[in-house]
Write a protein that binds this DNA or RNA. Structure first.
Lengths: 223, 223
DNA sequence: CCAATAGTGTCTATGAGACATTATAGT
DNA sequence: ACTATAATGTCTCATAGACACTATTGG
């Protein structure tokens, strides 16, 4: 196993959060070569002497680059080529991560709405692909799983959760169907609490029971 | 980008075929250290000076190790750690591949029925995990896609295809539902030919229209 | 009592799954 | 005519989706 055969391995996590009724992605502005000043996924390189496994490398990179508590991480896919990074033959392992916006306290990072992505200049060409793959995977999963629960705070109401689904999917959902789907899978627990938000009936407060998303039988519950 | 940060990247393809009414996996017997004589996935290492991309590395490895025409390849997942390979910190990119048994002409490789896997001694611990992940992914996809078409020869009958589904899923399927599902997606074309197999009505011969599997609406069509 | 949102009840069209029936070959 | 498999037709039950209805708050 000669050094000739070794390559650089980078971790590219696409970090999602929802606020201001928009799906946002966390980006950084590159402060070293190549592509100084351009936008980039907040990634990092696997350091064999530090990282025991790929997972621990992901944890380290996310901690260093975002400082955020991560609610959910999932590997998307791996790409690799001589041209990804001008410096070296590179393998990129892409992830997507869901976080709560409230937890973010990183000066270097910036949240970008997915509608604004087109206005950003990415140095690394493959970052565009990775981001669009991540968005595709997210919207796909939203159609048939309880994944968006991982975007919520510890406690939340069903109308709030429905809003999150609607933002990601970009369409209105039927309230009745939505509630049936969410409650028939036993992943939410009614805390018994109520929350008053205005001059109308207060909403019941739920919290997560499991921390793994559950798949639905069928795809969608459109209006 | 120092050499300190580089790691070995291996390609681990789980190659499936069906014959003798069993799902089989292609294995090799290791002929060099470590783990000489043990069973292994027919994998290989990415060679930056030869391989332009990860995909071309996969093609090269599959060609070298199996010599088979590959009907379908899909990336499963990537693992990486200091302990996967005793020689070096290694990243393993796992794939699953579907081939036609008839095409195999490799002396070093051996087909093993998935029921016989337990009798095989794998040097690399992670190969067991990769194989079980691949089997899981395959059975999953069989439930909601036309993927098994990629296990067929150019021309085949619907009863033959149904048999393949039944072998992978390990259960009988309803003929009527199966035909409806297969024909409502426009991926098969009736060649107009008939094939006679015995003292009964001959079966219509179909061939693939597309070479990408199609997803069903719902999961399964059990008896 | 009104407006606004939360939450429940009901109806219908669809389609998967189960099963019955017909078609076509060889002996 | 009989047998075995191919292929099609039909029926039923579950349920997703649509929509109407009730509940609860503040003003």
């Amino acid at each position: 196993m000669t050094d000739i055969e070794k390559v650089v391995t980078s971790i590219d996590p696409v970090v999602f959060s929802i606020f201001q009724d928009k799906l946002h992605i966390l980006l950084v502005e590159r402060n070293k070569e190549p592509y100084v000043g351009k936008s980039a996924i907040p990634g990092g390189v696997v350091i064999p002497s530090i990282d025991r496994t790929l997972e621990s490398a992901v944890s380290r990179v996310l901690k260093e680059k975002t400082g955020i508590k991560i609610n959910y991480v999932e590997q998307i896919k791996t790409i690799g080529s001589a041209s990804i990074d001008p410096r070296s033959w590179t393998v990129c392992v892409a992830y997507f991560a869901l976080v709560e916006y409230q937890n973010v306290t990183v000066p270097n990072a910036k949240w970008v709405s997915i509608d604004d992505l087109k206005n950003h200049d990415f140095g690394f060409e493959h970052h565009k692909i990775v981001i669009s793959d991540a968005i595709e995977r997210l919207t796909n999963k939203v159609n048939y799983s309880t994944l968006p629960v991982e975007l919520m705070q510890e406690e939340f109401t069903l109308p709030e959760l429905q809003k999150i689904y609607e933002i990601i999917l970009g369409e209105k959902l039927d309230k009745s169907s939505f509630r049936k789907k969410m409650l028939e899978n036993k992943i939410l627990e009614d805390t018994g609490k109520l929350i008053k938000k205005g001059a109308f009936r207060p909403a019941a407060v739920y919290k997560k029971l499991k921390n793994e998303p559950v798949l639905f039988n069928k795809n969608i519950f459109k209006i």
